[in-house]
Design a protein around this nucleic acid. Structure first.
Length: 594
RNA sequence: GGUCCGGUAGCUCAGUUGGAUAGAGCAGCAGCCUUCUAAGCUGCGGGCCACAGGUUCGAAUCCUGUCCGGAUCACCA
């Protein structure tokens, strides 16, 4: 808002002074650095060459002209080629009175009338959710919320990989060595099925080792192992729709979903539509066969179907096996088509790890070749892996950080810390539990989301996630502090509703806060464009920090000037509102007390 | 080997289309609670922005090369 006003004035001043149009690309405003006076700075270096003037000269001329034509500008100063503009207090006060009670503050209408489908989570039913899924889920959920706040209609979908050989492995292991339901075993369903998968792997390794001892080569042994043959036989029976196999499959998947639902609920994420690969995996085949018919795809000896992408700098890609079964890509072609049919949309975002960059390049290219004009709507939100100090998580080596365990640990740490600080003594048990949950999850969510999605990040289980400094609880604490002030204001009968908070002179700290608050819509819009909750997290931190400095030095309820006091109370409420809103975009709850 | 991504303080991370003396937090040290919540605030120390060139008024940011790390290139998903 401010930027566009300034830009217009700059261009106008420029034209009046030099009778020509400035290169708009160079008309860029940035925050003035702390050590100089001013709110907004424009760099005039780019214009010096064309006009053959010194930077100081140019900046001074433009500055004077802008102050002349723009009432929102109070004064300016020039340091080398930097024109620092001082915005008049009246502008900030106007912004404050208009926005501080506006419940839509921050949201934009950018995406109005446009739909975006976002897929995240996408679990396998043979493995419990782990730390990697946590990043995936939190990112997906948060980006969805951010896009909603930018006016888009967002459809959150989950694609569950519920079929395939890996599921059969778990089923087989359960038949052989399990035979108890989760309730009897006393563990969550997804954990039980996960254990069975691990068990299969272990037993299979033993068989393979035996065969190797008998003189078989390693790869040959893997193929000959009886367990593997049994698993493959089970998959065939599944595909043939054999009753008992299907029944077992349904039962075990049911256990898994029950477990997943608990985890999702604790994580605070949800979906509008859940797709199952078992229901969609056949659709891709039609597309592939049609592509073959149209001569876009080709067959190799044996009958497998391929797509040639060498002209695009990629390889040949298998789309259907010789035996007619589908591969990963086949399924994804089908699901993309299905999704576009069901939810025609501007964008289809897939929140999937960066290890699959190649897969998505291929997916888009193949769809394009198959004549799908909407292929470009597919967007891979490619995020970095979460690594442990020892490197990548490996389920076989038992170095995965389980999602449920981690969340429980966070909540437990929150309980301990809060108790040590003596802050939960006056709370009822259920209130206290809610608080520990909010703080523990707040710490986790902030920790994950403050990092740029595309970067690989490190998680050290030995050092628990911090509660001090640049953390979720820091922001939550700031919010709780403000709420406490507002409660006290009401208790002591201070009327916070009237308009007596209008003041004329804006003190320094207050101005910094308001200036920062005015940035929120800009940050929100940008985080939507970049699909980056990290921008929101960093903003929230900056705002909380700025508030704490204000809080530390300025009296609020104890301020004797009543107008100023009312103004400060109002400002507090505006900050709390914005923190809550920003937190909501990250899935963080803001406690009233902590 | 080809392709893609990354390398910023001891550690974890910011640094928006190139801008002023590169910022936070943690860890370390020193202060601030009889006054609105000390999960807070203030101060100190800590940097060849991997390396070498180039582009220009100006480069952590753009280009080229080198080194290091990661991902990926399956009739796996």
């Amino acid at each position: 808002m401010l930027d566009s006003i300034l830009k217009k004035a700059f261009v106008e001043a420029f034209q009046m002074l030099y009778q020509k149009q400035p290169d708009l690309q160079h008309v860029v405003f940035q925050k003035t650095r702390q050590e100089f006076e001013g709110d907004v700075t424009i760099v005039v270096f780019p214009f010096t060459k064309d006009l053959k003037k010194s930077p100081e000269m140019l900046a001074t001329e433009i500055g004077s002209k802008m102050v002349e034509i723009l009432p929102e500008l109070n004064r300016f100063n020039v340091v080398k080629g930097f024109l620092n503009l001082v915005i008049d207090d009246s502008y900030w006060l106007k912004f404050f009175t208009e926005m501080s009670d506006n419940s839509d503050f921050g949201t934009t209408k950018k995406g109005q009338g446009k739909r975006i489908v976002i897929e995240y989570s996408s679990p396998n039913t043979n493995k419990p959710l782990h730390l990697g899924h946590i990043r995936n889920n939190l990112l997906g959920y948060s980006v969805a919320e951010i896009l909603k706040a930018n006016g888009y209609e967002v459809v959150k979908v989950n694609l569950v990989n519920d079929r395939g050989i890996h599921i059969c492995k778990s089923m087989l292991a359960w038949q052989k060595w399990g035979q108890v339901a989760p309730e009897q075993a006393g563990i969550k369903g997804d954990k039980l099925v996960g254990e069975m998968y691990v068990r299969f792997d272990k037993e299979l390794k033993l068989q393979v080792a035996d065969l190797v001892d008998q003189g078989f080569a390693a790869d040959e042994a893997a193929k000959r192992a009886p367990l593997m043959a049994e698993a493959q036989e089970m998959l065939r029976q599944w595909e043939a729709g054999e009753h008992e196999t299907k029944k077992l499959w349904e039962t075990m998947n049911g256990w898994v979903y029950e477990g997943f639902d608990q985890t999702y609920e604790k994580m605070g994420v949800d979906f509008d539509h859940i797709y199952y690969e078992s229901q969609t995996y056949l659709l891709g085949k039609e597309l592939v066969l049609k592509g073959l018919e149209d001569g876009i795809l080709y067959q190799k000896e044996g009958g497998s179907i391929w797509c040639d992408l060498t002209a695009d700098g990629l390889d040949e890609k298998l789309l259907m096996r010789a035996d007619g079964t589908s591969v990963y890509m086949t399924q994804d072609l089908g699901t993309a088509q299905l999704r576009m049919d069901e939810y025609p949309s501007e964008k289809m975002i897939y929140v999937v790890g960066n290890e699959q960059n190649y897969h998505f390049d291929v997916l888009k290219l193949v769809l394009k070749k198959l004549g799908r004009s909407w292929a470009d709507a597919i967007e891979h939100l490619s995020y970095g892996m979460v690594e442990l100090p020892a490197g990548k998580m490996k389920s076989r080596e038992g170095t995965v950080v389980d999602a449920d365990d981690l969340m429980n640990e966070m909540i437990e740490t929150a309980r301990q810390t809060t108790t040590e600080l003596g802050k939960s003594t006056d709370l009822e048990a259920d209130e206290a539990d809610k608080l520990f949950y909010q703080i523990g999850m707040g710490a986790l969510k902030y920790f994950i989301l403050k990092v740029d999605p595309k970067k690989t990040m490190l998680f050290n289980p030995a050092e628990s996630i911090d509660f001090n400094g640049n953390t979720g609880p820091f922001v939550q604490y700031t919010h709780a502090r403000i709420r406490s002030i507002l409660r006290k204001a009401i208790e002591s009968g201070i009327n916070t509703d009237d308009s007596s908070f209008i003041i004329k002179q804006l003190p320094f700290k207050e101005k910094s806060l308001i200036r920062l608050l005015s940035q929120f819509p800009v940050v929100l819009a940008q985080s939507g464009e970049n699909r980056s909750p990290a921008l929101i997290a960093n903003y929230m931190y900056e705002l909380a920090k700025e508030f704490n400095q204000f809080y530390q030095t300025e009296p609020i309820l104890k301020e004797e000037n009543l107008k100023l006091r009312a103004f400060r109370i109002h400002l507090c409420s505006f900050v709390a509102f914005t923190l809550r809103k920003a937190g909501g975009l990250l899935g963080m709850q803001m406690p009233e007390k902590m």
